[in-house]
Amino acid sequence: MNNIRSRFSSLREYLTPVTHTSTFKTTGEITPEEFVAAGDYLSYKFPTWQWCPVADDSLEKTFLPKDRQFLVTRKVPSYQRALSYLNGGAEEDDEEDVADEDGWTTTHTHMLKKGDNEKEVAVAKNDHSHELINDQEIQDIDDDDFDIEPVVEDGKNPSGGVVSSSQESRRNYDLYITYSTSYRVPKMYLVGFDADGIPLTPDQMFEDISADYRDKTATIEKAPFLQNTTSVSIHPCRHATVMKVLMSRAQIAAQSRKAEAAEAATKDITQGINKLGLKDSEETGGDDEWEDVQGVGNNKEEDEEDGVIRVDQYLVIFLKFIASVTPGIYHDYTMDAL
């Protein structure tokens, strides 16, 4: 049954015609060309994101350049599970409210009672005890290890011959962004590893998806651009709407900034005129200032027409959105670093 469904969706992905008309201002959707431009901008600004080719020609999306099939950032740390964000999720609520205005159906958020939390925590605990059982199974190997311990001790431990980085709860994620033809938006895939570099199971990966999205938009599937890799994808059915909302918010913010700038500009002009009145000899200087101010003003207007957010900044905003879906995965750390 599921096979049929996933085949249907890949068929749909295959059949949906690729459009090249830019509509991102009105719909929040982007064309493959815009995806490439946005990817270039992202990987330029944040070099942890890199373009990647596909291993096998059969996986290739022909409307994307060969060397720009998808974006990847590897081994992004996650120190805390999304569960621990449930109670104090002020930021998420904020996000929610805005989305609500645009008709986002939030069926789960307010229904998520304390009981659910406890259940989920219990599930997580069970997983852990399961791991402990595994450890016991190989206890004898552990004992054997003391035989090799002397060598290892000599080599590793004298006055800290190595740096130990014991961070059991740390996970690492490989994050991928591809272009979804059927929804004309970027699509996010996550592949997780535990602190020992062992692949996470889908259930474990779901622990890192915020509960609001976990049941609605997170899907388990084979990453279509990789070979034999099961991933969790964020289903892109609502991406366009959310992106539109985020962009209009950014526009409002930019407009208020513009208003401030205009006020400041008026002051400049007044000063310029004052200067003109005071010193005739510096007329040319005054003119320059005028032109300058006008130049800035014109640019601002153009920006506004462009919807404030340029299309190459699309993925940066997209990642801000994804950060609310996966609150514990620190792909934003790059932005702090720069």
């Binding site: 190997i141 130990s164 602190a195 199971t201």
Partner: peptide, 21 residues
């Protein structure tokens, strides 16, 4: 020297249970 330690610092093999994957 060089056997890899697990994340809790012990010298033992790792186990990947990948049924679900």
């Amino acid at each position: 020297t060089g056997w890899e330690k697990t994340s809790n610092g012990s010298l033992q093999p790792k186990i990947a249970d990948l049924q679900s994957l």
